[in-house]
Design a protein around this nucleic acid. Sequence first.
DNA 1: CCATAGACTTGGTTTGACATCA
DNA 2: TGATGTCAAACCAAGTCTATGG
Length: 609
Amino acid sequence: MYCVRGQGDKRPAFEQAGELDLGRTCNSSFLCSSQHFMCYDRTTTKLHLFCVGRTWEEEHYEDGVKWRFLEHKGPLFAPEYEPLTDNVRFHYNGQPMKLSANAEEVATFFGKMLDHEYTTNAIFRANFFTDWREVMTSAERKLITNLNKCDFQEIHTYFTEKTEAKRVQSKEDLKMEQEAIAQEYGYCTMDGHRERIANYKIEPPGLFRGRGSHPKMGKLKNRIQPEDVIINCSRDSKIPVPPTGHNWKEVRFDNKVTWLASWTENVQGAMKYIMLNPSSKLKGEKDWQKFEIARRLKGCVDDIRAKYSADLKSREMKSRQRAVALYFIDKLALRAGNEKEEGETADTVGCCSLRVEHIKLHNKLNGQACVVEFDFLGKDSIRYYNKVLVKKQVFKNLKHFMQNKDPSDDVFDRLNTHNLNKHLQELMEGLTAKVFRTYNASITLQHQLEQLTDSEGSEAEKLLSYNRANRAVAVLCNHQRTAPKSFDQSMKKIQAKIEAKKEQIDLTKSELKSAKMYHKVKKDKKVVEKKKKMVQKLEEQLTKLEVQATDREENKQIALGTSKLNYLDPRITVAWCKKYDVPIEKVYNKTQREKFAWAIDMTEEDFVF
DNA sequence: CCATAGACTTGGTTTGACATCA
DNA sequence: TGATGTCAAACCAAGTCTATGG
């Protein structure tokens, strides 16, 4: 099979060539770039990428191989530190002091953050001070022994003014420059396609900002040197050249992984990677596969639910704990909850790592029996608080699991994510705990859209329905945000607008009335018609405003982005847009449309998750 | 079997560009 | 025209899950 450009149509055509015959045609495909097509084969339900002029064989990958050819420039390093001029001074104990370059650089990291709450946090300060002292000269270290005596105010003012000046200054040249750099470093070639890189910049040095009460907050994130960086590319590509006077840590040619460069970060010892943009073939294909797995779960979720419901009464403790955990993961969309190294990270939990102190059992609560009250910090130290009515057997089991335990003991002491996932793998190929989140999120969106959308409604009302459906998912997944700081103000503003609009309507209505009276006398119909139209138009504007206000209010502390980007099968959205005649741009912005290009092109109105 | 390294997805916040308002 | 509000993009931390090696 051989791929050629379709005529006047963005879809490619496929011609049979040579002896390779798949015996089927692609029913749907889409354009990625001018020469680059992704193709969904409905018969095998496989997604394939084609390039014009290339054959099926060339595009066929062996198992585990992610690419055949990869060429890139290497990462872009953070600019070197520019020492402060003499008029910007650090003060110790009231005295101005010139710091050595290294110590000064680290001081600027702290100084820049001065109006952030972090800098008043005891742990942050202690960690910062320890690491700062390590980069000082011995003379500095001897002198600077108390952070409370350090004054970074001048440094702070200097950088505040600098950013302000930058903001005011003309941005044309700067923009061009940035664009040139992005063109050079921001793209790579993978298997004949120019692909965008998500993060081509090496993370600059700074102070580590953990979330929640993180024991390592304030620690110094070192400057990454080429000597720390591993490059991954094709053996036969132009190998990235390290900055002058430097060498790479290693250059490897591993086509079983997707990253272009990696290094180890010093604060947590975590690996960092340079990878492709979500719009790339590699990521798109993976994303699509994720949703296909979730759809497979849809097909067998009833059996799985029956299985774990039965296991609630298992004689084996491990099975019973697993059943309860699975019940929560399925019903509440909890995360799996891997074990974490104590003292290395913020104390957060997921399902398998729930402790006794995170759960309260209520035999009766507000007239309901068997209520479980959850209160714990999940990923990113976001609080999960929920009171849930559960099955009697779940409640009984929980009581049993928690018996004679300390608050800090694990609820599921016989369970971890590894053996939970191993069990799931036996129930369905590719099934892991997180698939339940994807499945439940997507199916919820689909159901909510069915229920909420009024095909007779205006576009604004349809969009409100969409956002509400999206919101239901975000609530399920506990995706929260801190309310924007000007939220109340902007809410008041929109209310004022609504009031003004109402007044205007009243006024126009009375004008209409007098126009009608006038019409009786003068037989001048034009004015009446005009006023009528005006009232109608104003009322439309009013509903639009009201809808907007409702949407915003309901969204105060809910973050829709994460579910939209990661959990909701985009094909549900695309199908909905087609069905209700809503332009896709109204629900997906440019980035989202790029990421979901595959779905936008392959989805018909009748798609069902 | 377990611990850890490694790779990749998911997640909230910050930044900065752009639009809109006064 | 500058101030202010809004949204997307950038950022990078924090999860999940698999592979690896003893």
